[in-house]
Nucleic acid binder design. Sequence first.
DNA 1: GAATCGCATAAGTGTATGCTTATGTGTAGG
DNA 2: CCTACACATAAGCATACACTTATGCGATTC
Lengths: 104, 104
Amino acid sequence: MIENDIFRALADPTRRAIFEKLAAGGMNASALREGMEISQPAMSQHLSVLRSAKLVREERQGRFVNYEVDPEGLALIAQWLAKYRAYWPARIEALKVLLKDMDQ
Amino acid sequence: MIENDIFRALADPTRRAIFEKLAAGGMNASALREGMEISQPAMSQHLSVLRSAKLVREERQGRFVNYEVDPEGLALIAQWLAKYRAYWPARIEALKVLLKDMDQ
DNA sequence: GAATCGCATAAGTGTATGCTTATGTGTAGG
DNA sequence: CCTACACATAAGCATACACTTATGCGATTC
């Protein structure tokens, strides 16, 4: 179940930080480690978890591996969230922003 | 960090099932257990986790405790998701549904 | 082609998590 | 009040998880 992979992946604060960093622009694993006080194997393992959750995707570039946000994971979260739209409060600021951006 | 509580709460499939059940209508803990093969303490513990994640809220009714979906948790997920709207694919079906529902 | 670099994988370890059984707490009813 | 009921909490246990160190594997570079 992919939903399980997604929520489990996001349950770890380090992985959310990695994801947020990637959201600002794709980069390789070494660049991701900069300023993050995390070992190389740990980063590799986190990226593996994010990858199987479809939150991140990789692209080999020589001996580097460039990582970037995978929209598929985000879309799946949006789908999950949409199931409960009956319970969304009418005027949450985030939703207004969301609406404005999607209307474009 | 509430984000942490939310994603950790949703990382468990049993808790997502409980949440989904409550989304169909509020009910007490005993009613929730029906058809779920889960012990009474386990249910109580799961509800406690969902409660501290603001995904569920309680309302005492005599010796029963009625549980229902708390919109606050869902709104927080929406906020988190909104941060990455730049990566949402243009025409995901779920997002269209989402947009349609939020408009008007 | 040997060394180095970027990254993945293996194996081991402490801690968190979800369960269990047992017990506590508060409310309703006879 | 005394019992029964709905639920919460405590304590213990097996497993999952995030980390570590060590090693493997391609790809570049000299």
